[in-house]
Design a protein around this nucleic acid. Sequence first.
DNA 1: TTCTAAATGCGAAAACTTCTCATTCCGTTC
DNA 2: GAACGGAATGAGAAGTTTTCGCATTTAGAA
Lengths: 151, 151
Amino acid sequence: MESQDLKRAGLKATLPRLKILKFLEESKQRHMSAEEVYKALLEAGDEVGLATIYRVLTQFESAGLVTRHHFDEGHSVFELNLGEHHDHIVCVRCGRVDEFVDEIIEERQHRIAEEKGYEMTDHALYIYGICPDCRKTQGRGPRTQGRGKAN
Amino acid sequence: MESQDLKRAGLKATLPRLKILKFLEESKQRHMSAEEVYKALLEAGDEVGLATIYRVLTQFESAGLVTRHHFDEGHSVFELNLGEHHDHIVCVRCGRVDEFVDEIIEERQHRIAEEKGYEMTDHALYIYGICPDCRKTQGRGPRTQGRGKAN
DNA sequence: TTCTAAATGCGAAAACTTCTCATTCCGTTC
DNA sequence: GAACGGAATGAGAAGTTTTCGCATTTAGAA
Ligand SMILES: [Mn+2]
Ligand SMILES: [Mn+2]
Ligand SMILES: [Zn+2]
Ligand SMILES: [Zn+2]
């Protein structure tokens, strides 16, 4: 039961928060904008106000339940925190997102922060490119899976 | 004369474009938002419409004259392209921005894109942390140099 | 100088996010 | 399980950043 997850995170188990958390857990897409969560819940008949979606996602972020990303779009993208930290490689053609972890890069980042005298609090690495599928389909943007520019 | 730079970039040497380019070259701050460029020109008596600032910076980006960054703020930050590519470490307290290049990271990124089957088009690495100065001043945000949250 | 396509400035509008505040809900107390 | 009080929600207004539409101006060629 998700209520426990919320309680543990220091949040009251309200209906909107439960709906949002449940949705994030069950969605096939791991990376979603507030708007996308809103629309998906709407379709599922679990409507939650958009303002609440934004508030709750921000609270989840503070509580460590989700991570907020800033891909080169213009809006925030959220992801449920499951296992470990990871970085992203994003298709500029269709919006597909793949994940990866590279210990060497992680380690270098720490060293760089140290060298510069910074106390590192966070870091974000985004690789942009054309995914395998889109490389085949040379023409304009192909299958608009995920969140493609083509919306 | 900057007109040549513009012509070379395939852009007509208009007054607004010249003002913006000149300003970017002479400004002490290397990383600036459209709004900051707008205000600075305004103060200098070289007012250019904000819409034009946005248009021109986007054109400069397409022409390879500037690079657009998306620090974890909510707006774009632009930087004149001088030498080589580099990444950024940003102070979350005062907004200070330092730059660095790490060949190992660069190389790993290429390898990752390759492994995932992506044709890399770009990449961005942002390290966030507390800068040396801000670490000394433990309290709330100290000197609001650069573009700090404290505006 | 004249001419034309391109660029600019302005305000309107779009896109995303936060805020305000009346209403509702959660969780605790009785 | 009814009552209470503070926290959370919903709806719309408002804030931010960026783009758009179009009348007017300008760069650069003729
Ligand atoms: Mn992810
Ligand atoms: Mn830089
Ligand atoms: Zn793709
Ligand atoms: Zn600092």
